[in-house]
Computed example of a mutant assay.
Amino acid sequence: MATTEDLTTLWDRCERVVVLSGAGMSTDSGIPDFRGPNGLWTKQPDAAAMFDIQTYVEDEEVRKRAWVGRRTHPAWSAEPNAGHRALTTLQQAGRLGPILTQNIDGLHQKAGSVEVLELHGTIWETECLTCHDRVPTQQTLARAEADPRCLRCGGILKTATISFGQRLDPDVLDAAIDAARHADLLVAIGTTLAVMPAAGLADMAKHLAIVNAAPTQYDAQADVVLHEPIGEVLPEVARALG
Rank of each mutant, 00 (worst) to 15 (best):
I230A: 11
T122C: 03
V62P: 10
T8M: 04
L117P: 06
G200K: 11
W124M: 11
V18N: 02
A144N: 15
W76A: 05
T55M: 12
W124D: 03
T161H: 09
R167H: 13
A111S: 01
A48L: 15
I123V: 14
V68E: 15
E5P: 00
R239N: 05
E115S: 11
A205E: 07
H120E: 09
A198L: 10
G200P: 10
Q166L: 07
L119R: 01
P45F: 09
A78R: 10
G154S: 02
E60V: 06
L117N: 07
Y56A: 15
P148Q: 01
L208T: 06
T140Q: 08
P229A: 02
I189D: 05
T130I: 11
A220S: 13
T3K: 00
H132K: 13
Q217L: 12
E145T: 00
A222V: 02
F164W: 06
P32C: 07
A209G: 02
P170Q: 11
R16N: 08
S26Y: 02
G112A: 02
R16W: 01
L185Q: 05
C153F: 03
H73F: 13
H73C: 13
I189G: 06
Q92C: 11
L168T: 07
H132L: 12
D203T: 13
D219A: 06
P197H: 10
D52Q: 15
P148M: 01
D219C: 07
W76E: 04
A48C: 11
T42E: 08
D133Y: 05
Q44D: 14
P197A: 12
A75D: 10
G97S: 14
A183Y: 02
T130R: 14
G39L: 09
G36K: 09
C153I: 01
R181V: 12
A175Y: 04
G83L: 00
T216C: 14
I177T: 12
K158A: 03
E60R: 14
D52P: 09
V224H: 08
T126P: 07
L87W: 09
C128S: 03
A175I: 05
I53M: 15
I230Q: 00
W76T: 08
C150S: 01
W41D: 04
E125K: 04
A66I: 06
L20V: 15
L129T: 11
A48M: 14
G190W: 04
D28Q: 09
T55I: 15
E232P: 01
T192C: 09
M1G: 06
Y56P: 11
I162L: 08
T101M: 05
E127D: 04
L40G: 12
Q221A: 03
D12V: 01
I99T: 05
W124A: 03
F164C: 07
A183M: 02
D52V: 12
V237A: 01
C131Y: 10
D6I: 00
Y218S: 05
C153W: 05
C128E: 02
A240S: 11
A47D: 15
E61S: 10
D223L: 04
P197E: 13
G36C: 11
E228A: 14
Q102N: 13
R149P: 00
L141P: 03
I162G: 04
R149D: 02
A205S: 15
H84E: 07
H132A: 12
I53K: 14
D171W: 08
V114Y: 02
